[in-house]
Computed example of a mutant assay.
Amino acid sequence: MTGPTGTTGKGGVDTDGDRAIEAYGLTKSYGKPAVRVLDGIDLRVGRGTVFALLGPNGAGKTTTVRILATLTEADSGTARVAGYDVVAERSAVRRSISLTGQFAAVDETQTGEENLRMMARLTGLSRAGARRRAGELLERFDLTAAARRPVRTYSGGMRRRLDLAAGLVGSPEPGVFFLDEPTTGLDPRSRQELWEVVRELAARGATILLTTQYLEEADRLAGRIALLNRGRIAAEGTAADLKSRVGGHRLDLVLTSSEAYLRLAGRAVHHSPETLTLGIPTDGSAAQVRALLDEIDPTGREIERFGLHSATLDDVFLDLTSKATTTPEASAHV
């Protein structure tokens, strides 16, 4: 079976013998009649890298993570995580990974320290060993001062840090981390705090597969990004690679009439009907900008004003997903 090209991420280089995650031809359907959620996914993620799986709601992100984390089986295809087959060597995979879902899985009635000591005991550590491990993780995730406070008093960012710490209790480091939309519902400050934790994990050599709907998050954290749409990989590469797909720059045009807006809308990667603004991809050169303006508005009456901007992942996202609707995942698996 032919797979995609090797991936690299911030802080790491991928070679054929140095991959933490490999997946080929993954498919998955749910329900009756069957709804195809994944339609042949290929992924290769190098050890010690940060890889973002980006896509709209229902694109298949969580289903991909559940398969790689051994929580569900693919209908077809193969996958290996940390060198182990996710079906034949499920237990070994689980010993090598940490999974953080969209909502913190901690007991709010217990203190942060009690949560970590309980997790440590469940992994088989002695009372003394569990106490030591909890203390190490509380210090590492900057939670020592709040260690004996009930988790219900924690901020969203603190709960997320505790959730990540709990995932590390029994997992060997640096290990493989699956972060499934970890900043969902967090305020901007808490998101920033979690981003710092992700950067620290990556700096320590962890491999991180991050799913997100936040384009800024993927741009800031990931060395390589795959855009998932309708259960397929629509594009993959570095942030710069993906931005170059829509021209590298964007010429924003404020039109003088709705007729002009509608006539040009099909060429745009950015749309704002309220302000009659369209974003047209361009390479950013003066020659091409002049040519576009002359082509679009030869009479000089349809463009009120314009501005040139660097392309963003928003442009890539909208360009690659606007031409098709996504296939919804079954609600229990989103």
Rank of each mutant, 00 (worst) to 15 (best):
L264F: 02
T184V: 15
T326P: 12
T275A: 10
W195Q: 15
P33V: 13
A105F: 02
L308M: 03
V246Y: 00
L251C: 07
G9F: 11
G83R: 10
D187V: 12
S244W: 01
T7K: 01
V198G: 05
Q213G: 02
V169S: 13
M158E: 11
Y84Q: 01
G48C: 14
S310F: 00
E193P: 00
L125C: 04
W195F: 04
A52L: 04
S244A: 15
G167C: 09
L227M: 10
V13N: 02
A265E: 12
L320H: 08
E193N: 10
D252Q: 12
V334T: 14
I296E: 00
G135I: 09
E73C: 11
T8H: 11
A69P: 07
A202W: 04
L293Y: 04
G205V: 13
S96K: 01
D297I: 03
S331Y: 00
L242K: 08
Y261T: 00
A324Q: 14
V269M: 00
T111P: 06
D314M: 14
R161E: 12
A202T: 13
T111E: 14
E304H: 12
G3A: 09
T299R: 12
A145C: 04
L125S: 05
L71M: 15
L143A: 13
R232E: 07
A218Q: 03
S272F: 06
A332Y: 06
G248K: 01
L68M: 09
S29M: 09
V289A: 07
R80K: 11
R199W: 04
E274Y: 14
T275Y: 10
A218T: 07
A166V: 07
T282V: 08
V246L: 02
T8L: 06
M158Y: 15
A147H: 12
R148S: 14
E22W: 07
T7Y: 00
E22K: 07
A20S: 10
A82E: 02
I67M: 13
L122H: 04
G48M: 11
I225S: 07
G55D: 10
T5E: 11
I296R: 01
R36M: 08
R36I: 03
S285P: 04
A23S: 11
T15V: 06
M158F: 15
A222C: 05
T5K: 03
M118Y: 15
V87N: 02
A202V: 13
E89S: 04
T207G: 01
R245V: 03
I233P: 03
